[in-house]
Design a binder for these strands. Structure first.
Length: 274
DNA sequence: ATGGTTGCACGGCAA
């Protein structure tokens, strides 16, 4: 598939094991023109990340931050990577953030901690870690994001911030991913850029929009008890280039699916300097 | 109210 000649199409997908999901990655890149694919939950030791296979699928360039068993993020690109960096937060090296500069844009691939089940930071260390991770991102973003370099932040943020980002707002208020404190902290993180929510530039906030459907539903499509956990944000200077967005939910219905659907955003070509 | 499914370090844990 030819990619957009001067524009850039970026996709983000929590694949829930990159090795297991390689055939589905192949189907995705066969169906859509993607220049950069950001993946979360690679779930493989660094020497077991399928770099050759990803190169064969059209992504010879990569910036990967991975570990055995859990987590792991990667940026796979058709275009050269000009600079890359692995980032870690909260005193852990847990492979949840990687940055790569492609076509002059700083691309960040993120995997925010899920946070467990009990929405009490005193009783549940995983929820405490999630809240502290969001605080660390907010602090980092307010200190270190260079306004002169266009940036794009994407991945599994594990928070559904709007009422229409969950299938039932009232039922979800005490469920992790949609608790008030998480929604507040994601809001603070977004304002710290400020970051533009690219997906909601295309789908108004009154409309439901989901990227994740649990494996545990009998029929994910019929029940449609989804959540918008995956996001793509851009710096304000990049917002005028937002040209298209798709949640590729067809992939949720494939054989051996991930529980997340890919999010695909297209940027129009940069205007020439005058 | 509970349980439902998936993936990895092969089995308890994380999601």
């Amino acid at each position: 598939m030819a990619h957009s000649p001067n524009g850039l199409t970026v996709a983000s997908w929590n694949v829930n094991s990159l090795r297991l999901r390689l055939p589905q990655v192949g189907r995705l890149v066969g169906a859509r023109s993607i220049d950069v694919l950001c993946v979360q939950e690679i779930k493989a030791a660094p020497d077991k990340v399928p770099l050759m296979e990803m190169a064969a699928l059209g992504f010879p360039h990569h910036a990967v931050h991975s570990m055995p068993g859990y987590n792991g993020v990667g940026i796979f690109s058709r275009l050269p990577i000009e600079d890359e960096e692995a980032l870690d937060w909260c005193g852990k090296v847990d492979c949840r953030h990687v940055r790569a500069r492609v076509a002059g844009i700083d691309l960040h691939c993120l995997y925010v901690p899920a946070g467990g089940d009990l929405p009490d930071p005193e009783e549940n260390p995983k929820f405490r870690h999630k809240l502290e991770f969001l605080d660390a991102l907010t602090d980092w973003s307010s200190r270190s994001v260079d306004p002169d370099i266009p940036a794009l932040l994407t991945g599994d943020f594990n928070v559904a911030p709007l009422e229409t980002d969950v299938w039932d707002h009232k039922k979800m208020r005490r469920i992790i991913t949609h608790t008030p404190i998480e929604r507040e902290k994601l809001g603070a993180f977004q304002r710290s850029g400020p970051w533009v929510d690219a997906m909601r530039r295309f789908v108004p906030p009154e409309e439901k929009l989901f990227t994740w459907w649990s494996y545990r539903a009998r029929d994910w499509k019929a029940a449609n008890r989804g959540r918008r956990l995956d996001h793509l944000w851009v710096t304000p200077t990049l917002a005028p280039r937002l040209a298209g967005m798709e949640v590729f939910d067809e992939a949720r219905g494939w054989e051996l699916p991930s529980d997340h659907a890919p999010v695909i955003v297209t940027l129009s070509p940069a205007l020439a300097e005058t």
